[in-house]
């Protein structure tokens, strides 16, 4: 029986993440898997990965907080919190000052304002639309017949700025066909797609003060973060393991529920 451990589970629409921490808030292990259609299987696999990395035999006796769209699908969780609270909590741990947090996940993106005490003072989520999310990048990568993992290296090598103006994912795909017909280089198209994601985020809310980015898109597309920095003319802070910030925040809530 492993006691004194705290687990955060973030069951997102695209990926399920698990994080195990100790009383000192150290991340002992983490795991990420596709959420797929079987949340229970995904939760089990993500936990197993986190456990293995932490060198734990099991996590029985740990306090568990679930977050993400599938947060209510974890029967053994002690409580749930929205991913909005958990991302803010996780981000404030690494950047304990007022900041604007941009989280780009698989199916949604958020801009969260955190004050100097770590309280959320406002938040906005994307509207019912995939534009500006990881799903948008996946869909476009699929249309371009490029693995989503290659987008970053392609965008990095781009030489021209092209504008992808459509708001809708389907219309963007059509716009891309036009660019292909015009012989625009694939690398420039990918850079244009990154620009489009950044634009959608900037339309959601103002980004005051320091800016932090979390989520799978920031984790796997560091060049997008650099482009974002150029766009706003300020440094963007990215926590360690940005894809796990929500799960980590959930684990912190579990710890704090125990008075930690």
């Amino acid at each position: 029986m492993e006691r004194g451990l705290f687990v955060g589970l973030d069951i997102g629409a695209s990926m399920t993440k698990a994080v195990v921490i100790d009383r000192e808030r150290n991340i002992l292990g983490q795991g990420v898997v596709f959420s797929g259609s079987d949340f229970q299987a995904a939760i089990k696999k993500a936990l197993k990965k986190a456990q293995a990395l932490a060198g734990l035999k099991n996590i029985e006796g740990s306090l568990i907080v679930a977050t993400g769209y599938g947060r209510r699908s974890v029967p053994f969780a002690h409580s749930t919190r929205t991913e909005i609270s958990c991302h803010a909590r996780g981000s404030y741990h690494f950047f304990p000052r007022a900041h604007s947090l941009v989280d780009i996940g698989g199916q949604d993106s958020k801009v969260i304002k955190v004050d100097d005490r770590g309280n959320r003072i406002a938040f906005k989520m994307n509207r019912k639309c995939a534009a500006g999310t990881g799903a948008f990048l996946e869909e476009i990568a699929n249309r371009l017949k490029v693995k989503v993992g290659r987008l970053n290296e392609l965008a990095e090598k781009a030489t021209k700025d092209i504008s992808i103006g459509s708001y809708c994912t389907v219309f963007t795909a059509t716009e891309i066909l036009t660019k292909i017909r015009e012989n625009v280089d694939l690398k420039d198209i990918v850079r244009g797609i990154y620009q489009s994601v950044i634009q959608r985020i900037m339309e959601m809310d103002t980004l005051e003060g320091e800016v932090v980015m979390t989520g799978g898109v920031a984790a796997h597309n560091p060049f997008l973060v650099r482009m974002f920095e150029e766009k706003i003319g300020r440094k963007i802070f990215v926590p360690p393991l940005p894809q796990f910030t929500g799960a980590f925040g959930a684990a912190l809530y579990a710890l704090e529920a125990k008075g930690g």
Partner: peptide
């Protein structure tokens, strides 16, 4: 068709957590 149940509820719940 214009209403996303999960998105709306997550927003409301996060608002109450705030």
């Amino acid at each position: 068709r214009c209403y996303s149940e999960e998105q709306a509820k997550t927003n409301i719940e996060a608002f109450i957590e705030q």
